[in-house]
Every structure is written in structure tokens, then in C-alpha cells.
Amino acid sequence: MIINHPLLGPRDAAEFVVLGDACLIDRPDGMNSASEEMHDYAYVRDNPAGEHRELWYHEQGDRSWLVVTRSTLTHDVIKVELARDVARARGRSR
């Protein structure tokens, strides 16, 4: 499997560690959210047959966290973004 790193180009998947669903970016603020919301964040994941946005970490590389959009059916990699850019686009900042 090959991941096309936005900064470093195509890299073998063996250089990466996968974490799972990219919804982990959307962490609720612990001071201003219900426990249920944090519970869902910690435990609840979709398990789609098809397109899935995943967090991959380039541990044997530049240590970028990436959001890889991948088909769980064909293993096609559809899009690769820096997780930092995705997080900012989703309104995360400081």
C-alpha cells in the first residue's frame, strides 16, 4: 500500500502507523460539553463499507499526522491531507 504524502510524495504504508477514524480530530471541549458527547467521541465509530477518512501517522518519517481518505472495499487512496490543515478547516485552532 502506498500513501501519497502531501509533503514527501508516495511513501510505503510500512512507514506509517494507523490510528483509525479521522473523527478523532473533532474532540469536544471538556469544559463545555456533556459527558455523553465525550463518551461518543471516545467510543463511537462508523464502520463504512467504502470511503473512510482515517488518521495515519508518519512515524518512520517526518512525524506528520495525515488524514487519508481510503476505500475500505478497494483500498484505493482517494485523498491525502495534512491533519493539521484538516483540523484548521474544521475550526480547530488553539
Binding site: L24, R27, W65, A83, R84
Partner: peptide, 12 residues
């Protein structure tokens, strides 16, 4: 820590 830095609080 890298996850927290890049994915949760990218502008710290």
C-alpha cells in the same frame, strides 16, 4: 503528543 499538537490544537 504529536496527535494533540497537530490534530487537536494545531495553532498552539
Amino acid at each position: 503528543l504529536e496527535f494533540a499538537r497537530q490534530c487537536l490544537w494545531p495553532d498552539l
